[in-house]
């Protein structure tokens, strides 16, 4: 197994005001390896963005240590290898998107011509080709988000931090983001993702860290996670006996049959079993709600109980 590109040990961050002190991160430890996509999941105010900003050196730690590529994140050689796309970024209103990207490219050591070329390529790829020629002052939230992502990718980073990358994006933007993360992983880029879009996280990430009140409650490995088939039928009572006999591990929750599966390949067989048993299928899907269920169980158990 490769060395971790990000090592966070005992990260602690407190925000102090005149009246109170809030512990935003409480001894959080985690690692991310090359080619791995890791999601930080938790409710608003859980400490996800703070964790990211601490890893990047944007916030001063009250305790703990961060190493990027085994080194201090403040080192200029380390910053050459990272990218960060913040949530709802804003850019100088009188500069065009291409100007902003050119600035980031030249700061990374590219010539102006190289930076311009790369900026145009990224703008094209992220659906900003036209908007990138306009001043940033008139950008929508989604366009700002895309420009932030383009800026983060200007230096072909080996470690990429994405804070709510799909916020403000339209469905095609979300799909493009999914493809992009998959491409980056294929190039051995490590991705740290902070998102509330659990279905996307489930599709692109290798691991999820559940955070609440600044603490990492659990690490969930997507590849080793139990998967389920969910089949909604009109007449559950008719097929219940047959299911009990042929798939004893399956359980009914109202009209929905839930069966643990090893892969999606078994779905046709399950459907055949239900239909041949006289069941009328309304909907069938594999896994899907697994991460959401886990999220609720781990992060918001009170809601599950309710």
């Amino acid at each position: 197994m490769s060395d971790p590109v990000l090592q966070a040990v005992g990260l602690t961050k407190k925000y102090a005001s005149a009246v109170s002190t809030v512990t935003a991160l409480d001894a959080a430890s985690f690692e991310v390896r090359a080619g791995e996509a890791v999601a930080l999941l938790g409710p608003n105010g859980a400490g996800k963005t703070t964790a990211m900003q601490c890893c990047l050196g944007l916030l001063t730690l009250d305790g703990g240590e961060v190493k990027l590529f085994g080194k201090d994140p403040e080192l200029l050689e380390v910053r050459q290898r990272i990218g960060f796309s913040p949530d709802a970024p804003q850019f100088p209103s009188r500069l065009t998107g291409l100007d902003v990207l050119e600035l980031h490219g030249t700061l990374l050591g590219q010539t102006r011509a190289q930076a311009r070329k790369k900026a145009e390529e990224l703008a094209q790829r992220l659906g900003l080709a036209e908007a990138a020629r306009r001043s940033c002052g008139g950008y929508s939230r989604g366009q700002g988000q895309r420009l932030g992502l383009a800026a983060a990718l200007m230096g072909d980073p080996e470690l990429l931090f994405l804070d709510e990358p799909t916020a403000g994006l339209d469905p095609s933007g979300v799909a493009a983001m999914r493809t992009l993360i998959a491409d980056l992983k294929a190039k051995n880029v490590a991705v740290v993702l902070n998102s509330h879009l659990l279905s996307e996280v489930e599709r692109v990430c290798d691991r999820a860290l559940f955070i609440k009140s600044g603490r990492i409650l659990r690490t969930h490995d997507m590849h080793n996670a139990a998967r389920f088939a969910e089949i909604r039928v009109v007449n559950a009572a008719v097929v219940a006996e047959r299911v009990k006999r042929l798939a004893p591990e399956g359980v009914f929750d109202g009209n929905t049959l839930r069966v643990p599966i090893a892969s999606e390949d078994v779905m046709p067989g399950l459907l055949k079993m239900v239909i041949e048993g006289g069941g009328e299928v309304l909907e069938a899907r594999a896994s899907g709600a697994e991460l959401e269920r886990l999220y609720l169980e781990i992060v918001e158990p009170a809601k599950v109980a309710a």
């Binding site: 990047l56 050196g57 804003q90 980031h104 990374l108 050591g109």
Partner: peptide, 17 residues
């Protein structure tokens, strides 16, 4: 103004002091 917009943070993550 660059800090308020959040752009300073992005630029200062680049290899410059």
């Amino acid at each position: 103004e660059e800090f308020a917009a959040g752009h300073a943070q992005l630029v200062l993550l680049r290899p410059l002091t």
